[in-house]
């Protein structure tokens, strides 16, 4: 049973979408700029893109790379982050290196990695992997660091080995924070995917976007923006649902994502 207030809160993002599209529509009508189609024109162009077999394959290939890059990054980063959070030595070992890598745009490594590995899937997936890893490591690190020492003592008293303590105490205790990192990483995976395709300009969603820009198909450009935007919003919403289920026990968290590239 949903109360009217709950219903209004759930529907609010939908209204926000409609409102933003309406502002777009009005702005483009007011500007009368050839290269700025109205929202309705852009929405009309969406079926054309999704109906085009090649474009669809391109987009799906992008999503596959993203999923692989994200998955591998999560599997790699969570253990590393947890270890860093529980061992000062491990943290001291990796922190400076991560600090140096942090402000480097991962997609900017594309040209160099392309030199070594070519323009194929491996390069793009690797770049996505790099982009996702850092926030996941960072949040796992913070989460593991904040785990109550006494909880681990109780674990040790119960006869858990260090590895067991890491998996059975630290991992679940740090899970809310880890999932926050994963959520950031997910948005980041999408961003890195688009950017890498914008730079490599060979295939994928980012490529469609920029080819359309070069060819002056402005409604396709804006339609692609809507598609990519919708992907971001849907992925985030889906992840949020999973997150909410997994950490039902934890304090209600701040329910807005902290996305960044």
């Amino acid at each position: 049973m949903m109360s009217p207030a709950d219903l209004a809160r759930r529907a609010a993002p939908v209204f926000a979408c409609i409102g933003l599209l309406a502002i777009w529509q009005i702005a483009s009508l007011a500007l009368k700029n050839d290269s700025f189609p109205t929202a309705i024109e852009a929405i009309r162009a969406i079926p054309d893109i999704l109906g085009d077999k090649e474009a669809l394959i391109n987009i799906l290939a992008s999503l596959r790379r993203m999923a692989i890059g994200f998955g591998v990054a999560v599997l790699f980063s969570i253990p590393l982050g947890l270890l860093m959070g529980r061992s000062r030595a491990v943290a001291a070992f990796f922190n400076p290196l991560l600090m140096i890598i942090y402000p480097v745009p991962k997609a900017a490594l594309m040209p160099i990695i392309m030199l070594w590995l070519g323009v194929g899937d491996i390069t793009k997936t690797l770049v996505i992997f790099l982009g996702v890893s850092l926030p996941v490591i960072y949040h796992s690190f913070e989460g593991a660091k904040a785990v109550e020492e006494k909880m681990l003592w109780s674990g040790a008293a119960m006869g858990l080995s260090p590895l067991q303590r890491l998996v059975r105490i630290v991992l679940p205790a740090a899970l809310p924070e880890i999932l926050t990192g994963c959520r950031t990483g997910l948005v980041l995976a999408l961003i890195t995917m688009i950017t890498s395709e914008m730079i490599a300009r060979q295939s994928g969603a980012g490529n469609i976007l920029f080819n359309a820009l070069d060819m002056g198909q402005y409604d396709t450009v804006f339609a692609m923006i809507i598609i990519v935007g919708a992907m971001g919003i849907c992925l985030d919403a889906a992840f949020e649902r999973i997150r909410a289920r997994l950490v039902r026990w934890s304090e209600p968290q701040f329910d807005l994502p902290l996305s960044f590239s």
Binding site: A12, P13, F15, A16, C17, G19, L20, N33, S35, F36, V187, L190, I191, I194, T195, M198, L209, F210, A212, L213, Y218, V221, F222, M224, I225, V228, G229, M231, G232, I233, L235, D236, A237, L256, P257, L258, S259, S261
Partner: peptide, 26 residues
């Protein structure tokens, strides 16, 4: 808050680089 919250919910997970072509045009 009632206005900003849903807008932020929609815009925050949006990959902003995708807006770059639009920004270039505008």
């Amino acid at each position: 808050n009632a206005i900003v919250r849903p807008i932020v919910r929609v815009l925050a997970p949006l990959p902003k680089v995708a807006l770059y072509p639009a920004l270039l045009l505008l």
